[in-house]
């Protein structure tokens, strides 16, 4: 079974924001490689012109009336926050990355 190249494993881990220890990386190479090889069987299934399913039971979106409901009090919204300053969430300084 071909392993997934380390570089690719690292790229995916970064994209998913998952810190992986060296041993985990090594394991991922092998396990992901095996699973992805197993997926390859699907490529043989003819699917030309077959619509991809997005909802098992087809339906249209229901629309919600534009009526505001009470918000959570800020104290509740922040109750579980690992880092907070008053009513604000706190994270390490944002530099560069992230949103476009």
């Amino acid at each position: 079974m071909p392993a997934l190249p380390r570089k690719e494993v690292e790229e995916i881990a970064l994209l998913a924001r998952l810190h992986l220890e060296a041993a985990e990386l090594a394991q991922m190479e092998i396990e992901l490689g095996a699973i992805i090889e197993y997926f390859a069987a699907l490529a043989q299934v003819p699917t030309e012109g077959i619509p991809p399913m997005t909802h098992a039971v087809p339906m249209d979106l229901r629309l919600r009336a534009d009526e505001p409901a009470p918000s959570l009090p800020a104290s509740d919204a922040l109750a579980g926050a690992p880092g907070r300053d008053g009513d604000l969430f706190v994270v390490p300084a944002i530099i560069g990355g992230g949103e476009p």
Partner: peptide, 23 residues
């Protein structure tokens, strides 16, 4: 709109921080 796109928490400019949220 009066409420958010996908939940009924209110839309308002200049409210105190994190006072317009829901789960």
């Amino acid at each position: 709109t009066k409420s958010k796109a996908f939940s009924p928490s209110a839309v308002q400019f200049g409210a105190p921080p994190n006072s317009l949220t829901d789960p």
